[in-house]
Computed example of a mutant assay.
Amino acid sequence: MTLLSLENLSVTRRNRAILNGISLTIGAGELVGIIGPNGAGKTTLMRAALGLIPFAGRSSLAEMSPRAKGRAVAWMPQSREIAWPIDVETLVMLGRTPHLGAGQRPQDTDHAAVEKALQRMELTPFRNRTTTRLSGGEQARVLIARALAQETPLLMVDEPIAGLDPAHQIATMQTFGTLAQEGHSVLVSLHDLGLAARHCTRLIVIDKGRIAADGPPLDVLTPDLIRDTFGISAFLQDTPQGLVFQPLQVVG
């Protein structure tokens, strides 16, 4: 089952090509990491795929109606600011909006989805806390929970672990992995190559607006690619506990 299909997707801004000829598909049960240096086009790719910015080419998600898209994909952008002083449970319930009709109150299935999302992000004790009084990392977890509560086949998240402590970074990636095992798919942009290597089933490397590599982490993270794309050397080893990736030094 294809959850996202991009064909020759390109984005140009102010006469400058940001993305050029991106084609890919994402099926069920994948945890796909989008990696690349700053300015490579990772966020632009996700926003264009959702139809949030103008693009040339084709995106299967951008062709959907807003309501159909809301049931097909949950989106969490980089922005972590929560503007309204509402409690955690109410904010997470907003993820159920695509499943509710006009004026319809949440049903038992909606409350169950919210409860599951709160538990997954270890937020059950926070349910009655005011979101604007939480720390930045806690707010990030609330926003991830809102996306999880949407219960869509595809979850797209842009730098979700930024600002989280190491334990919650790992826990969040494990949650994404569990979703993939359950048949959902997650497309996540990451700067932490160690977490990407360890948890993702597939990596897509974006460099200079193009796909530089696409495949399993062990196949993608070659010494040449790491040097040419990121300008570093690194230690990479497949262990019984999974891949271990550690940047070592900047190389010319």
Rank of each mutant, 00 (worst) to 15 (best):
T131Q: 07
D224N: 12
R141G: 09
M64Q: 15
L100M: 07
L243K: 04
S79F: 10
V157F: 07
P66D: 08
T124I: 11
D87V: 13
D214M: 06
T178H: 13
T131H: 07
G39N: 04
A17S: 10
V32T: 06
M64R: 13
T222L: 13
V250S: 14
G29H: 04
A74Y: 12
A74W: 09
R58S: 15
E81H: 12
E182D: 15
E89L: 09
N20S: 15
T131D: 10
M46H: 05
C200G: 05
I34W: 04
L190Q: 00
T178G: 14
F126Q: 11
G36M: 07
L218Y: 13
L4Q: 00
T172I: 07
K116C: 13
N128E: 15
N38V: 07
L243M: 06
K42A: 02
G57P: 12
L187Q: 03
D192E: 14
D228G: 03
L203A: 02
T239V: 08
A147S: 15
H99M: 03
A113D: 01
R133T: 12
G231F: 04
L123V: 09
P247F: 03
R133V: 06
A167P: 03
D228C: 08
L94P: 08
T229W: 01
A83G: 12
Q78H: 11
C200L: 05
L24D: 02
P77M: 07
R71K: 14
M1L: 06
G209S: 10
L52D: 08
M64S: 10
L3S: 06
L221P: 03
H99C: 11
L24I: 04
I18D: 01
L9W: 00
I226N: 03
D87E: 14
L154K: 05
F55Q: 02
G41V: 10
G209H: 04
L179A: 07
A113K: 00
I34S: 03
D214R: 07
L50W: 05
A171Q: 03
F230G: 05
R80W: 04
D165C: 03
D165Q: 00
R227W: 06
A113S: 13
L164S: 01
A17C: 04
A197R: 00
H191Q: 04
R198G: 00
T44D: 11
L248E: 12
G252W: 02
L94Q: 13
L61H: 03
S233W: 11
T239N: 09
R47C: 14
H184L: 11
N20C: 07
L195D: 00
